[in-house]
């Protein structure tokens, strides 16, 4: 099944997804969307791990994705809580309006 598709296609897809995540992080203005871009980057890395694991015929890469998923879940919990407090204090989710810290 997987052998029908060359391995490097998966790696290319992973790189494209990662780049989309970076682009979303840099250019989107909504904090939730920015946060989702980071999740996209982490999942792109997961795809790489699984592909390499398949290619190397090892089980390690699959295990790493579980670690990454657990960490991403913890990060999501903390991140959404932080975003919530920001919204409660400022009633905005636009990242350009969160700019009170300056000299």
């Amino acid at each position: 099944m997987m052998s029908a598709v060359p391995v490097y296609w998966f790696l290319m897809l992973s790189a494209v997804l990662f780049a989309l995540g970076v682009a979303g992080f840099l250019f989107r203005r909504n904090i939730i969307t920015v946060f989702m871009s980071i999740e996209l980057m982490l999942n792109a890395v997961n795809l790489s791990f699984v592909t390499f694991s398949y290619q190397l015929k090892q089980v390690n890469g699959h295990l790493f994705t579980f670690f990454v998923m657990v960490v991403a879940a913890a990060e999501a919990a903390v991140g959404l809580a932080i975003i919530l407090t920001v919204f409660k204090n400022r009633s905005t989710l636009n990242i350009d309006e969160v700019n009170s810290l300056k000299n």
Binding site: I38, A44, V45, F49, E75, I82, N89, N99, L101
Partner: peptide, 25 residues
């Protein structure tokens, strides 16, 4: 101010972590 610090630290910190992780992969 603390909210904002926390938000910026979180967003940029996780962004950096994703880069590190891609390097690991």
């Amino acid at each position: 101010r603390a909210n904002e610090a926390s938000l910026k630290y979180f967003l940029l910190g996780s962004f950096a972590t994703a880069f590190f992780l891609y390097g690991v992969a």
